[in-house]
Amino acid sequence: MKSFKELKEKAQWVKRETLKLHKYAPGTRLASSLSDIEIFVVLYYGGILRYDPKNIKWDKRDRFIISKGHGAVSLYPILADLRFFSKSELAKIGSKDSFLGIIPDTLIPGFETINGSLGHGLGVACGMALALKLKGIDRNVFVLSGDGELNEGAVWEAVMFASFHKLDNLILIVDNNKMSMLGYQKEILGMEPLKEKFKAFHWKTEEADGHNIAELRKVLNNLIKDDSGRPKVLVANTCKGKGVPGLENDPICHVKTLEADEIDNILKGCK
């Protein structure tokens, strides 16, 4: 497990690599992929997820479904760094001989499911969590979802299912960046008070600053340890487009593409 200093450096590196990926493939959803970087870093480098890049089907791995597929580009450098696939693949993103699309699919080593269509991940994770219990495998199923994604009705079918079946090996992380494609959630469907909604469905809930590595790690460890027999949710409060001034606080940053020279300037500033 890495120190907090190392984890912070990792997050900076992932940010730079994500910006480069956006330069190679301008169709990538950059803003959405910047809000979840620290979450990915803590999961993969912070001793939370158990995985084996040499054996991606390892039965004893924790399952991780990145339900907000658009925001998963920042996971590519991490998977390459951990040798799920070669780092040389990164520069090929979106090209005809690459398996890295701007939205990930099951061709990419390390991805469990197809993730481009929103609202499926939690239900699929419920099936996996149930299967792990029946197989006697003491591992967790993690899901990363966007807050906008929670507008999908199928998510709430799964929320009801998870608590009724006491799936305490299921951990949902909501990347609560408070925006979806057309603007702020509070002006679209208003998901707040989000934590209370999950509480009402009898989930164990936690909240954290989704860019604070120490806090994320502490809270995720608390959730893993919780033995109250409930599914668990972490509402991670994040900022869409985090760290890029042209994206942060722009209500339509989801679809915003940066020019190559803009990216070069940002990269110069965050070495």
């Binding site: 239900g123 419920c126 099936g127 149930l130 299967a131 792990l132 197989k135 079918e157």
Partner: peptide
């Protein structure tokens, strides 16, 4: 369908 998928993936 989603729960069935998760079980089948396992």
């Amino acid at each position: 369908i989603n729960v069935s998928t998760g079980l089948a993936l396992e």
